[in-house]
């Protein structure tokens, strides 16, 4: 607070609107995504489809972490899994459940491929923690 005051005093009051604008941006800039959302975009953009958004919150209501990260073999580091539709069709990765038996099948493209074009892959939506330097 004291530092902010000192800076304002040194720069003069004409910069006050600028300071207030910075303050305002910090308050109203929306928190992107839900905590733990993962964007998968190894090949979606190149293939001309929307990137995949994986909502951790939705899945952990129904499955414990160990089902996907132990039984299915999903690595716990975002980006470490090269998930391809051809693999899913063979029952690997998401395809183990998304097969119209446990969950809806792979023909429902838009339910997974729901992100904005151009999103970088990785974990999004870190409420409070903006995220480790590396995931």
């Amino acid at each position: 607070m004291r530092l902010a005051l000192a800076t304002i005093r040194r720069l003069g009051w004409r910069f006050l609107p600028f300071f207030l604008a910075v303050l305002a941006l910090g308050f109203i800039w929306p928190v992107a995504a839900e905590y733990g959302d993962v964007v998968l975009n190894h090949s979606s953009d190149r293939a001309g489809v929307r990137p995949v958004i994986f909502p951790h919150w939705f899945h952990r209501i129904r499955f414990r972490c160990k089902v996907c990260h132990h039984e299915l073999g999903f690595e716990m580091r975002a980006g470490a899994n090269d998930v391809k539709m051809s693999d899913l069709a063979q029952g690997k990765f998401c395809g183990m459940c998304h097969n119209n038996e446990v969950a809806w099948g792979l023909e429902n493209c838009g339910l997974c491929h729901s992100g904005k074009q151009g999103l970088a892959g990785g974990i999004y939506g870190g409420h409070r923690t903006l995220g480790p330097g590396r995931w």
């Binding site: 992107a32 995504a33 838009g110 992100g115 904005k116 074009q117 999103l119 939506g125």
Partner: peptide, 9 residues
């Protein structure tokens, strides 16, 4: 509104 999902989808 989450800046992640495409509203056009």
């Amino acid at each position: 509104d989450d800046n992640l999902h495409d509203p056009e989808n």
